[in-house]
Design a protein around this nucleic acid. Sequence first.
RNA 1: GUCCCCAUCGUCUAGUCUGGUCUAGGACACAAGCUUUUCAAGCUUGUGACACCGGUUCAAAUCCGGUUGGGGACGCCA
Length: 434
Amino acid sequence: MRVRFAPSPTGYLHIGGARTCLFNWLYARAQGGQFVLRIEDTDKARSKKEFLDEILDSLQWLGLNWDELHFQSERFDVYLSYAKKLLNEGKAYMADDGSGAIIAKMPHKTVRIDDMIHGQIQFDTSLIKDQVLIKSDQSPTYNFACVIDDAEMKISHIIRGDDHISNTPKQVILYEELGFELPKFAHIPMILGQGGGRMSKRAGATAITEYRRMGFLPEALVNYLMLLGWSPGNNQEIISLIDAVKKFDIMSANKTAATFDMDKLLWLNSQYIKVCAPERLAASLKPFLLEKGFIEPDNFDGKSISNVLKLYCERATTLEELSEALRPFFVQEVGIDDAAREKFFSQDLTREFSFLKEKFEALSDFSVQPIEEAFRSAVAELGTTTKYLIHPLRVALSGKTVGPGMFEFIEALGRQKTLERIDRIIRSFKNQPR
RNA sequence: GUCCCCAUCGUCUAGUCUGGUCUAGGACACAAGCUUUUCAAGCUUGUGACACCGGUUCAAAUCCGGUUGGGGACGCCA
């Protein structure tokens, strides 16, 4: 059993292509067959090396490895020889405009295909015009190269998007004329954009790399894509690639088009971030931290932030968001926006913060419990409330009005930064004209 | 225009093949509550669907026909 994914390097790998690839990959792995990657680069003008690299890179990132790699651009002579064969047998003819194109005669008959997902589909080929096999520049057309390669590469199951259903009768005719054995077809539904219709850039991100840049974990994206048109059963929503291989069957794939839902993808991503091992999470976070200038390429130790990650991984939906939340730990001074300043520092808290600072300075063990005790005794001795002091303190230390539990945060931030930032806020009270 | 595909909560889906166990289950989102130093997370509860019409049958989300709606294809692009 052999399947293939056949992207064209005329653009980035997009969501729909990735899902088609995923279903092929899953079916191959589930059945113990081979998964062939075939690059359909017959259009030399539009095919680009950067797109090829990007497609390969995205597939690897998603964890979809291939057993064979082929390039159509290296096989033009093969296509041409098959075209000449059809020419000799009278099943094709030269274009009469002298362009050198070779065109297949379309016989008039009824073609029936037995699709693994849709069942029987019938076509009247008298409605289809003659098909160009070889273009005037001697390159093959898609439908021709596709059939030759699928046959020669012994592809047994063709799993591809719904949009290829209307190509199928044209290809079946070619299989018959060439005397090739017919593969099985499985046409999976397309993924629709938010407004219905094809996913477009306007309706959100389409390229896999964009999702990577937005801070999605590959296992979350793969999980989401699996759920679009297939269900593992038992109300299971979270499923790994490994687990899916055990349960996947193309026969149980849906036939209804699915609308892409960013909310559910975000939810899945948050679920995966929550359970991601700190070392791996740190490694995945590295590009984002670099991008923000929080770290240098060479001196980043993932271990050093694992404690901090534990505080934040429960409340992040993307790596981008997570890395931004980590800002207070990497910058020297935190910025405090006007709204937060207005809300929490409109009155002078010099006395309170000074007292807190004394309490913190006195701690020999700067960890959660003593920190909390120090804070609570300060509150009691000042005759104020937790609420009154804890929010201004959060803003002073993190620059943000929201975040993890205060005492865990302070421990993670460390004594030095904590005291510096309390000092800084005290100074700002002095400088404020009242 | 012609041909093809599809139709269960707003969205993803289970159930459809093998009609009764479905007053239709789960997830996201939404709403409320609990928890609470904030925001989340978590937990509990709630709102919410078989597109429509007809047929077959004792019985239809499930089978059949039609209507409507949505999507796709009609390139010397892939």
